[in-house]
Design a binder for these strands. Structure first.
Length: 475
RNA sequence: AGCGGGGUAGGGUAGCAUGGAGUGCCCGCCGGGCUCAUAACCCGGAGAUCGGUGGUUCAAAUCCACCCCCCGCUACCA
């Protein structure tokens, strides 16, 4: 789920494409998948932005939510539900959730005290101040006291730590787990969960003159998005994975599980915090004007190559750099030259052959399916693509070694059989990453869409017809 | 400052837990082969004091100590 205040950029596209790839992979494996995304729409920023634009907050976020949906359509995202936190069903779910926390005795009225930077509209703790001044702008801050309701987050310190040690997968990737554990060990402060001054939000059910702190209510979106507390949400929850940016890891790895424990609900199995993109080596920012627009990328390179690049260029967990140069290298080298060319030479050779394409498997040992599966299970689609491409390269080598253009009869049929089956299997394996391309390969091979279990060398049943190249070179 | 991650050929990475010849992969570069394929494909080669110093060891990229440099997180803007 994304906090909407502008149209999505590469970072958003990355998260969503990665989630889509994982969702498609599990469907390919015959598993039942529920893929939820959506938009977090409340908060002061949108309230103000709406005023500036002469719209109601609702009108303003309606526009943004539609923009998100359009971009996901353009990227071929196969989500099952799209939750909007300004929807009535979400507000009802959030209110219900808070009442459950209250029943556990975890909500109390207190006083929030902090330093407020008026021009930045931001609160700071003592610790964050830079020499008594605002750490962002360096101006004076003033002490503010506000009556507020609190969530007894401090109560959950030990339960969280126990949960982390009992479920090592929960804090993913491993490199992130240390910082969360240590901070939790250092102690948790209770969390102020209401705002008196912000109107654009979910009314706080215990005192409707206030709204619920946006974050707290947005997290409940993971439940309201699957229809909780109604419907068959019980068969979907707990979520297998929440895929989030590393900057919001704290909310997902600490606050959210504590909230769920308080409400007496199961905790998701894994929080995966992914890394960020820089652009041409620089941080993406409006002031530099280097924000990468995914729609522009799709127009320029089309959806599949862009999706491929996002996953192939860096591991999910790491930071990486986005550049047109890197994009061109990947497309020309790996999509056009490795994959496109393999399919092209296979299809050309096969379409000149009249007899039945059959033989005995000779490429099986190069296909490390278990390893690929394992990498995907560990949430490493980057590593999985590396393995898939290793198979593609081995298959290209096989063409050179066999030199089918010099063969005839059964020897030729055998070589073609291996190539056709390899292409069919490759098509299945890449389908979660590049669904359109996979369909193109299938149509040239004359086979239907396969499942993961069909990634075995069997009998080749397709009828091959040479078609267009899968990709075009880019400059 | 505290906590966390990282520094491996021109660039990007894997390897490090359970030490064993600098071993692998991708891009780039040089040379060769092939001609089915969008000058694509295949093979070979050059290129690294594995951040630095010291230590443990028969043996260290890998273990230990200290140092240098990069990056992230530090909770109520989301």
């Amino acid at each position: 789920m994304y906090y909407v205040n502008d149209k999505p950029h590469v970072g958003h596209a990355f998260t969503t494409v990665a989630a889509d790839v994982m969702a498609r992979w599990h469907r390919l494996n015959g598993e039942k998948v529920f893929f939820l995304t959506g938009t977090d729409e409340h908060g002061e920023k949108n309230q103000k932005a709406a005023e500036t634009n002469g719209l109601t907050p609702q009108q303003y976020v309606d526009g943004l939510a539609n923009t998100y949906k359009d971009v996901w359509k353009c990227l071929n995202i196969s989500y099952d539900a799209f939750i909007r936190t300004s929807s009535p069903s979400h507000e009802a779910a959030a209110a219900k959730f808070i009442e459950m926390m209250n029943k556990s005795g975890d909500i109390y009225k207190g006083e929030y005290e902090g330093w407020y930077c008026v021009p930045d509209e931001t609160f700071f703790t003592d610790f964050q101040l830079a020499g008594g001044k605002c750490p962002d702008c360096g101006r004076e801050v003033k002490k503010v006291k506000e009556e507020s309701y609190f969530f007894r987050l401090s109560r959950y310190q030990q339960r969280l730590l126990d949960h982390y040690s009992d479920n090592p997968e929960f804090l993913s990737p491993e490199l992130r787990s240390g910082e969360i554990k240590n901070r939790v060990k250092a102690g948790l402060r209770d969390l102020s969960i209401t705002r008196a001054s912000i109107k654009w939000g979910v009314p706080f059910p215990l005192d409707r003159s206030r709204t619920v702190y946006v974050w707290v209510e947005a997290l409940v979106g993971y439940l309201s998005g699957i229809g909780w507390p109604n419907g068959d949400s019980g068969s979907i929850w707990p979520a297998d994975t929440h895929l989030v940016g590393k900057e919001i890891n704290w909310f997902h790895s600490v606050i959210w599980p504590a909230m769920l424990m308080s409400a007496g609900l199961p905790v998701p199995k894994r929080i995966f915090a992914h890394g960020w993109w820089t652009v041409d080596g620089k941080k993406m920012s409006k002031s530099i004007g280097n924000i990468v627009d995914p729609v522009g990328m799709v127009k320029k390179y089309s959806a599949d190559p862009f999706r491929y690049f996002l996953i192939r260029e860096k591991p999910l967990s790491e930071d990486g750099d986005f550049s047109d140069k890197a994009m061109v290298t990947r497309i020309n080298g790996e999509l056009v030259d490795d994959l496109g060319n393999l399919v092209s030479r296979t299809v050309t050779l096969a379409s000149r052959f009249n007899g039945p394409i059959s033989g005995k498997p000779e490429l099986e040992s190069y296909l490390r399916l278990e390893r690929i599966n394992g990498l995907m299970a560990r949430f490493d689609p980057f590593g999985a693509l590396e393995e898939i491409w290793s198979f593609i390269r081995s298959t290209n080598k096989y063409v050179n070694d066999k030199a089918p253009w010099r063969l005839q009869g059964s020897e030729l049929a055998n070589a073609l059989y291996n190539l056709a089956e390899a292409c069919r299997i490759i098509s299945i394996l890449i389908s979660p990453f590049m669904p359109d391309t996979s369909a193109k390969i299938n149509s040239q091979l004359g086979v239907g869409a396969g499942m993961l279990e069909d990634c075995r060398f069997g009998e080749f049943r397709g009828r091959i017809t040479k078609g267009e190249h899968l990709f075009r070179k880019v400059a």
